[in-house]
Amino acid sequence: MRKLVESTFITIDGVISDPHVWGPPYWDEEHNNYSAGLLFGSDALLLGRETYEGFAEAWGSRSGDPYTDKMNSMPKYVASTTLKQADAWNGNLIEGDVATAVTKLKEQPGENILKYGTGQLDRTLIQHKLVDEYHFWVFPTIAGSGQRLLDGVVDVTHLDLLETTRFKSGIIVLTYGPKS
Rank of each mutant, 00 (worst) to 15 (best):
E50P: 03
L4R: 10
L149G: 08
T8A: 11
T8W: 00
P25H: 07
A58G: 06
S80A: 04
N72G: 08
R49K: 10
N32T: 14
I10R: 00
N112C: 11
A36D: 15
Q127G: 11
F9V: 10
L162G: 05
T124R: 13
L162W: 01
L105C: 13
G119C: 01
Y176C: 14
L121K: 06
S42M: 08
D160S: 14
S80G: 12
E6M: 14
P178Q: 15
I10T: 15
N90V: 13
I142C: 04
Y116V: 08
W22H: 04
G37Q: 12
N72Y: 02
A56C: 03
A101C: 09
Y116M: 13
Q127M: 07
V5M: 02
G177M: 08
M71P: 04
L4V: 11
T165I: 15
A58H: 10
S145N: 10
G152I: 00
A101S: 15
T51M: 12
L93R: 12
A86H: 06
H135V: 14
W89C: 11
S145L: 01
S17Q: 06
S61Y: 08
F167A: 02
S180R: 03
K3S: 13
R2C: 05
G64W: 13
K76Q: 05
A79V: 09
D87Y: 00
A88M: 05
S7M: 03
E111R: 15
A86G: 05
A58D: 10
K115M: 15
R166E: 11
Y52Q: 04
S42F: 08
R166A: 15
L93F: 12
V15I: 12
V173T: 12
G117D: 04
D97F: 07
P109A: 04
W59S: 02
T68E: 07
T11W: 00
A36W: 10
D132T: 14
S80Q: 07
K179M: 09
N90Y: 04
G37D: 09
L159H: 12
S42K: 11
T82V: 08
T124A: 13
S180F: 03
I126K: 06
I12H: 00
I16K: 00
K84P: 05
Y176P: 14
L114D: 04
D122T: 08
G60H: 05
W22N: 10
K84A: 09
D122F: 03
L114V: 08
G91H: 06
T175W: 02
W89G: 12
G117N: 05
G146N: 00
M1I: 07
S42A: 15
M74G: 05
E30H: 09
D69P: 01
Q147I: 03
V5Q: 07
I94A: 14
P140N: 08
V153E: 09
A143R: 01
G91T: 09
E29S: 13
G60E: 03
M74R: 07
L121R: 05
D132C: 14
T103A: 15
D65P: 01
D28G: 06
D160M: 07
T68R: 02
T81R: 15
E163Y: 09
D87W: 02
V102I: 10
D97K: 12
E95Q: 15
V156R: 14
V5H: 02
I172G: 05
K106C: 13
D28W: 08
E107R: 12
